[in-house]
Amino acid sequence: MTWRNTLVGALAFAVVASAAVVLPAWLMSLATIALANALVVLGLIILWRAGLVPFGQALFYATGAYTVALLGRFTDLRDAVLFVIAAALLSGILAYLVGLLLARYRDIFFAMLSLAMSMILYGVLVKTETLGSTDGFHVESATFFGSALHGRTAELVLFWFVLAWCALAALVVSVYFRSVAGSLAVPVREREIRLEFLGISVNRLIHLKLIIAGTLAGIGGALAALAVEHVDPTMAYWTTSGGFVFVTILAGAGSIAAAFIGSFLFELVRSVAVDLMPGTWQIILGTVLLLTILFLPGGLGSVVTVGRRRLGIKTP
């Protein structure tokens, strides 16, 4: 069963990768951003399964993005792989440090403390001249395996690059979901005390989830910075976090694929709404979120599950 899932996943990534060749430029750049953001959502799904909603995940997103931007600005490094690995490491370490504190909290206190952490970074970014203050700054183009690319080739390679990271992340997260620690999400949400008396530390389980989610968000931020070629403090603002939470609830905690599909739909609807009905984007956002919470508590992913059950197909 799991092998079939992995195969389907690999196939899906392969199809998307080849489809990229014929994608129009606007759709490709939209998809690139959507994929980068999907990594953040993937991390949030890990936390959401355990009942935790951080309202400050943008902290790690911005950390990843600024890592790439600053490396490009202050060093001679230009390698994209190196950029992303540096961003992953840095945001992972930050998540470890923040997690030392955050893992002790639950419910809204978890949400609010996480929010405070991201607002601290926002406060620093907005007011620091060398970090570009409110306007942020331009991100140097990265090189891929030693060669600088331009035009359509650059866009295509960047898309594949982002896609490759997504495939890797999806694989890692699916291994985690099937592991002992990953399967304990519902127990963490429902009965911490039983887990403690089975001999495992719930705080440490949550800390691990935070580190994984933070690292994913950092990678997402780094990739987004490479795609947009610009960073600014709003990447750390609470509304950015709110957007990620939105996609997470929309996607649901059920499946990895939902994170990518949800993120893509989000970007698509946003670009359409901003073009055709300016000033109503947030109304759409709020209404969809409301409807999801009220009528589809399991998110988009649960539609698939319910559908399968109706058709008599056993869900993996």
Binding site: S179, V180, A181, G199
Partner: peptide
Amino acid sequence: AVARTRASLLMSA
């Protein structure tokens, strides 16, 4: 599952 991996968080992951 918890009992078998509780000594090491990394193992459990």
